[in-house]
Design a protein around this nucleic acid. Structure first.
Length: 224
DNA sequence: TGCCAGGCCGGGT
DNA sequence: ACCCGGCATGGC
């Protein structure tokens, strides 16, 4: 087991001990997760919940039904999530893809090989790497490590990667040094968001942070 | 009260 | 290949 693996494992253990299970996107409503993955782009999750509630009240949490309504109507329903006009278009791009390629069946969509599905998702306007990986991990149960702004902040602050690290390298840092376990990746990502929220911005001094002991003297970027 | 959140795209150097 | 503005609501 490499030194990098040991450090990441320790990070996970410390975070889990401090915060416990985060219960992000429990797997019962897969379609909701897809919708949420787009709605949450650069947006507070609380706002997304309101938007999803609106869709549920309107009985629209199903691909065909949601694709039936006009784009402008969709935009109004998801308004609380912000960027509602672009997101309405992005949601419809995803829905069109699901309906045309898989007859709107999530089951069929996730029968696709994960690497193939990822490439196809990335072709959709409005779906980038983080959103695609969120869908694969949280909705599809595939062990893809999701990298976001918090992942970047926590990792660079602790000197586990240089400040100019890109998405793929950051993702590889986790995927190459942990067991490929979807529930581990799920929990780990959520925990990184939690610690990032609490400390990387609100408490830049890192006092009382579960990772306080793990600040390096000076950035020994973890290689390999 | 202002600042910012679980990004992504398109157009300009 | 970067860099940057636009997109928008609600919470703290």
């Amino acid at each position: 087991m490499s030194r990098t693996s040991q450090i990441l494992r320790e990070v996970y253990d410390r975070l889990f001990e401090a915060y416990g299970p985060q219960n992000w996107w429990p797997a019962d409503e897969t379609f909701e997760i897809l919708i949420g993955a787009i709605l949450v782009q650069n947006t507070n999750w609380k706002n997304v919940e309101k938007a999803i509630r609106n869709l549920r009240k309107a009985h629209l949490l199903e691909p065909h039904r949601l694709y039936q309504i006009p784009e402008q109507e969709l935009a109004i329903l998801i308004q609380p999530a912000g960027y509602f006009r672009v997101k309405a278009r992005r949601l419809r791009n995803l829905l069109r893809f699901m309906i045309e390629e898989y007859q709107g069946s999530l089951k069929r969509m996730f029968e696709e090989r994960p690497e193939v599905l990822r490439e196809k998702l990335l072709q959709i306007n409005g779906i980038g790497r983080e959103t695609a990986d969120s869908i694969l991990l949280y909705a599809g149960g595939h062990p893809r490590f999701v990298v976001d702004a918090y992942t970047y902040r926590v990792v660079t602050r602790h000197g586990w990667a240089p400040p100019d690290v890109d998405y793929d390298s950051l993702q590889a840092l986790f995927e190459d040094n942990l067991e490929l376990d979807a529930s581990l990746f799920n929990e780990f990502h959520a925990l990184l968001v939690q610690v990032g929220k609490k400390h990387c911005r609100k408490n830049p001094r890192c006092t009382n942070c579960p990772l306080e002991e793990m600040l390096p003297e000076k950035g020994p970027y973890l290689p390999e």
